[in-house]
């Protein structure tokens, strides 16, 4: 019997993971991005054990006075707030919130965007018309008024922040994946699949989906990056979830404290984290951009 018979699901998974690992590692920038994202992920997972202090616990120095507005030092690596909160601990715990929001909204938005794009692009006609008009409507929707109304109606909750972000960002991925689907459905292997008796759903999810996968992963990375930026903006404007700490929320508290001109570290730390993580995600997406668009590949 051919050896192929013995290879099961596990082998396929290993193969797929290996393939993606190779794609990412082929590009030096993506490799850096990948490791930075991995470090952030590890920090997010182990945040409660890594953070030295409670995020909203006043810290005292050796003389017993409140450690208020201390610049970075050995004791407080990223400094403290005006109320003596340890910014390093806040930063670590905020990583968790930010990554959860980024991953969840990135994932949901890519799932919605991909499905709408695949269905609209594959069926065309009326279905396409309806779905694309729907995305057009969302394109016309400004993010801030939308999230303000949502928060006003339902309160400052993480779920609604995610919901607002998802509703805003799925549209771009839907459009791009629709365009790619239209290009792929005209290829002859799709006709061949039809001639072999494949149903429409089978063609969409088994034959077209793997071919838009690089593009899908590219936009997944983009969507995560956009979610993080959007969450930061929303939190900075005071529309984040007040009970959890996020990088944007830290900047919001800085703004409320009125110490923006004094506490440069308070401003620098969350900002750098946002920039580093978003840039790393864009770097990772670069690798998929090259796979999705072979013309970009270096000769």
């Amino acid at each position: 019997m051919p050896e192929g018979f013995e290879r099961g699901l596990l082998a396929r998974i290993t193969r797929t993971v290996g393939e993606h690992y190779r794609i990412i590692h082929a590009n030096p920038l993506s490799r850096i991005g990948f490791w930075v994202v991995s470090v952030f992920t590890i920090v997010a997972i182990f945040a409660p054990w890594l953070a030295p202090h409670e995020p909203w616990a006043m810290q005292y120095d050796s003389e017993g006075s409140i450690a208020s507005l201390r610049p970075p030092s050995l004791e407080f690596p990223v400094g403290t707030t005006h109320l003596g909160y340890d910014l390093f601990s806040q930063l670590i715990l905020a990583t968790r919130t930010t990554l959860i929001i980024g991953a969840v909204s990135g994932f949901i938005s890519i799932v919605i965007g991909a499905n709408i794009g695949l269905v609209a692009g594959y069926y065309g006609g009326k279905i396409d018309e309806i779905l694309m008009r729907l995305t057009d409507v969302l394109y016309g929707m400004p993010f801030l008024p939308f999230i303000i109304i949502l928060i006003a109606l339902f309160g400052r909750k993480l779920e609604f922040v995610i919901l607002a972000i998802v509703l805003i960002i799925w549209r771009t991925s839907a459009r791009v994946i629709r365009a790619q689907t239209i290009a792929i459905k005209q290829r002859q292997f799709i006709t061949a699949a039809k001639a072999r008796g494949c149903s429409n759903l089978r063609i969409i999810y088994r034959h077209i989906l793997p071919n838009v996968l690089p593009l899908l992963l590219l936009y997944a990375a983009f969507n995560i990056a956009w979610s993080i930026i959007t969450e930061a903006s929303a939190s900075f404007l005071g529309f984040g979830d007040g009970t959890t700490i996020s990088w944007g929320g830290m900047l919001y508290e800085l703004w409320l404290s009125g110490k923006t001109r004094v506490a440069w570290w308070w401003f620098a730390a969350p900002s750098l984290c946002i920039i580093t993580l978003v840039t790393s995600l864009v770097f990772v997406s670069r690798a998929y951009e090259e796979v999705a668009n072979p013309r970009l590949r270096k000769r």
């Binding site: 290829r187 002859q188 292997f189 006709t191 699949a193 001639a195 072999r196 008796g197």
Partner: peptide, 17 residues
């Protein structure tokens, strides 16, 4: 669809990559 099968012209286009 089972009884009638097609063989296509372009072997580079008709196989899913």
């Amino acid at each position: 669809r089972r009884r009638v099968q097609m063989i296509f012209q372009d072997p580079y286009e008709s196989l899913n990559p």
